[in-house]
Design a binder for these strands. Structure first.
Lengths: 103, 103
DNA sequence: TCCATATTTCGAGTTTTATCGAATTATTGA
DNA sequence: TCAATAATTCGATAAAACTCGAAATATGGA
């Protein structure tokens, strides 16, 4: 189980529209992943800005990269995303186990 | 379905250790919720700092508050948390298009 | 080797967040 | 009304994050 600190870091990384979109694109891309250049074409932002965001995502363990000749291919790290989901759906331990007490 | 912007805001709110802990405590507390004072006792941080974080969580739609005489009781907003989980587990649409292609 | 492509690192300026004491507001009970 | 409790708002400061052009690095091909 992730620590709270670790999870907070990962969530913070996801908490930026550009980075969230990157992850969403990578989820859609699935096994094929996307190169940095392809992501840049989708987002239309400067390369240096994109690179900065990508390195955040790598740091947060949310994506992983593999060099493929001159291009760097990015992939979602499902394990990390699932870890966050687990943490957020931890409502099995909520009070008297009564999920969804919402109005 | 939440917009990306909305989701990014909510994730950013969760992406702070203090705020994540607040939400975790509230999930544990379940229906009973926790008053601001009770949360403060658990976290041992200044009231003004806590208040600031709580207002972030309210803004992000992650928690809701109800006044109960002099105390303010906080509750997790499961709907919002589930919205984030949905968005993060959207990997059904990864790569080769499986059903649930989009609504 | 030299060039083109793909991407990152550096550095500087801007903007946003976080922290927390002091002052303030809200509510209840005496 | 006054005092006590619960919590927020204000205001100032400190710390972190974002953006992006320019320069640098990595790779493969001519």
């Amino acid at each position: 189980m992730m620590t709270t600190e670790e999870a907070a870091v990962a969530l913070a990384k996801l908490g930026h529209p550009v980075r969230l979109k990157i992850v969403q694109y990578l989820v859609q891309a699935g096994e094929a992943g996307l190169s940095v250049g392809e992501i840049q074409a989708l987002l239309e932002i400067p390369g240096s800005t994109l690179s900065h965001h990508i390195s955040h995502l790598v740091t947060g363990g949310l994506i992983r990269q593999e060099r493929e000749s001159r291009t760097l291919r990015c992939f979602v790290n499902y394990k990390q995303v699932e870890g966050l989901v687990e943490l957020l759906t931890d409502k099995c331990c909520a009070g008297i186990d009564l999920p969804k007490a919402e109005a």
